[in-house]
C-alpha cells in the first residue's frame, strides 16, 4: 500500500470516529431537549390543569356552603367562577392526552363533574332549611369528593410520567456525554498507535536508510536498511541499492 493511502486512512478513520461520536452526542442532546420540552408541554400542562380543577372544585364547594348559609349572591358568583375555571382546566386536560389511559380518566372526570353539577348545583334552589346538612353530607359533598378523587388520579398519572421522564432525561444526559468520552479515549489510543506505527514504519526506516548510506559513504560496506513494508520506502531502498550496484 502507498504511504499516502496509509496516512490518509489513519486520519480518515480518526475523523470518522470523532464525527460519529459528535453526531451521536448531538443526536442525544436533541432528544434530551425534546424530552424536556415534551415533559414540560405534556405532563406539566396536565398537572397545572389538574391544580386548576382542584382550585375550581374548592371554590364551588365554598359557593354551595355560602348559598346554603343564605349568602346566595356570593355563593352563585363563586359557583360560576368555579365552573368556568373547572371547564378551562378540563379542556386543557382533554386536549393534552399523552399517557395511556389518560383519555379514560378525563372521560370519567367529565362524567363525575357533570353528576356533581346536577346533584349539587342545579338542585340547590329546591333545598329547604332543615334538610341542608343531610343533603350536603350525603349528596353534594360525596359527589364533590368523587370529582376530587378523579382529578387527583389524573394529576398522579401525570406526576408519575413526569418522574419517569426525569429518569429518562438523566439517562439521555449520560448517553449524550458517554460517546464523547469514549471517542476521546479511543482517539487517544488511536493517536498513540498511529504515532507508533508512523515511527516504526516511516521514520525509523528513513533513519536506517540514512545511517546505511553514511556507513556506505565511509566504508563502502554493504547497504541493507532491512525495510519490512512494500511501499515507497521499500522502493527507495531498492533504488539506492541499484544505484550503489551501478556505482560499483
Amino acid at each position: 500500500m502507498k504511504i499516502r493511502f496509509k496516512i490518509v486512512a489513519g486520519f480518515a478513520l480518526l475523523s470518522i470516529m470523532l464525527a460519529i461520536a459528535g453526531f451521536f452526542s448531538i443526536y442525544e442532546l436533541k432528544r434530551l431537549n425534546l424530552s424536556v420540552h415534551e415533559m414540560l408541554e405534556e405532563n406539566y400542562k396536565s398537572i397545572i390543569a389538574s391544580k386548576m380543577m382542584l382550585e375550581a372544585l374548592e371554590r364551588e364547594d365554598s359557593g354551595v356552603l355560602l348559598y346554603l348559609l343564605g349568602k346566595q349572591s356570593e355563593g352563585s358568583e363563586l359557583l360560576n367562577q368555579g365552573d368556568s375555571l373547572f371547564s378551562s382546566g378540563l379542556t386543557i386536560a382533554q386536549n393534552n392526552l399523552t399517557e395511556t389511559g389518560e383519555d379514560r380518566l378525563t372521560d370519567e372526570l367529565s362524567e363525575n363533574y357533570r353528576h356533581y353539577r346536577e346533584q349539587a348545583v342545579h338542585s340547590l334552589s329546591g333545598i329547604s332549611g332543615g334538610e341542608f346538612a343531610q343533603w350536603y353530607l350525603e349528596g353534594a359533598h360525596r359527589s364533590f369528593l368523587q370529582v376530587k378523587k378523579s382529578v387527583q388520579e389524573l394529576m398522579d398519572m401525570n406526576q408519575d410520567a413526569l418522574y419517569k421522564g426525569a429518569g429518562e432525561i438523566q439517562n439521555r444526559m449520560v448517553r449524550s456525554i458517554v460517546p464523547g468520552i469514549v471517542a476521546i479515549i479511543s482517539s487517544i489510543v488511536f493517536l498513540i498507535l498511529f504515532n507508533y506505527l508512523i515511527n516504526h514504519f516511516f521514520i525509523s526506516p528513513i533513519l536506517r536508510i540514512n545511517r546505511q548510506l553514511r556507513r556506505y559513504e565511509r566504508s563502502l560496506g554493504p547497504f541493507n536498511a532491512d525495510i519490512e513494508t512494500r511501499d515507497e520506502i521499500k522502493d527507495l531502498e531498492s533504488s539506492i541499492q541499484d544505484l550503489i550496484t551501478r556505482l560499483r
Binding site: L13, M17, I20, V182, F190, L193, T229
Partner: peptide
C-alpha cells in the same frame, strides 16, 4: 442502536487500522 453502532465502529476502526500498516 447508537451504542451498538458506535461500539462496532470503534472495534472495527481499531481493528482495521493496524492491518493497513503492519504487514
Amino acid at each position: 442502536i447508537p451504542g451498538l453502532l458506535f461500539s462496532t465502529l470503534v472495534s472495527v476502526i481499531l481493528g482495521v487500522f493496524p492491518l493497513i500498516y503492519i504487514p
